[in-house]
Amino acid sequence: MDTVTLRIKRYDGVKEWYQEYQLPYEKGKTLLYSLTKIREELDPTLTFSAACRHAICGSCAVRVNGNAFLACKTSLDQLLETFETERLTLEPLNNFPVIRDLVVDWEPKLERMKAVRPWLIPSEDGDPSEGFRQSPEDFRKIASPTDCILCGICSSECGQLSLNQEGYLDPFILNKAYRFAVDSRDAAPEEHIRPALEKGLWKCLHCMECVTKCPKEIDLAGENAYLRQASIQMGERDNKGARHAYAFVEDVKSKGRLNEVTLPMKTEGFVSTMNRIPFALRLIRKGKINPLHMPREVEGIEGVRKIYEHAQGVKEP
């Protein structure tokens, strides 16, 4: 391979177009190296952002062939190998307003982030002059979420956000809510969790894009599960998401398996379920559900129930 082609989405504030740049292939370079080379040698008008070049400042994220990467952390060779090509398409992050070329606007996102009160609401156990003590164990709880560099990759890739920009919070914002909710020095976890709940916490599609793409490998999906558990413990059980989850918990305990016939009723209640009658009839016609079918208890169900009892005793957030 002698040359690599980067096809870059351009935007000048008015119009958008794709522009191709050809670079001599050099082994062992990063994506950011290629972008810098284009700007320095081919086109000084190409606009992108980057600063630290060490995956710390979070300013260089772009999309390559539809997937977001940190340009400074990503090897060009690996991209060419992954996509089996010599030609890559670069675009700005998804789910952000674009300012110019590959540069996106963070202003509205940071504004949205305030919803979860991304700051410490101090407990009584210390004061600013004395400082706040934290055990190593408690510190470990916030070690991973504080790795977030606000690069925006999770927002770009989020399945729910891509369909619903307003009614859901970006994964990095949920990470912030989590980060303060589990901080032993924080006195008011609810104040971080409740706004997340009100902004569609249960709408997550479980697509696992955020955990897959996060350059800091933060367990964003696991954190989401924690926030939902915590919201349930706060008494927020009366919503579709929590009711749906409980339907599974209860069915496994009573029979071992899911009862697909009662699931919509348990999740949505009677009235909404009635709206699903045409849907249900369609399934019944094809034999997909049998309203008279009652799942039998699985072999060993008593053992399953004992496992439930044991888990109750092990409650640990």
């Binding site: 479980h206 998401g241 918990v249 169900i301 496992i307």
Partner: peptide, 26 residues
């Protein structure tokens, strides 16, 4: 598998993580 149960379908951990792990361990 005789006596297999629902895997939790990506929901049970939203109520109880330990329980989700336990039923799948079984």
């Amino acid at each position: 598998l005789e006596g297999w149960t629902c895997c939790g379908a990506s929901h049970i951990q939203d109520v109880d993580d330990f329980l989700a792990t336990s039923i799948n361990a079984r």
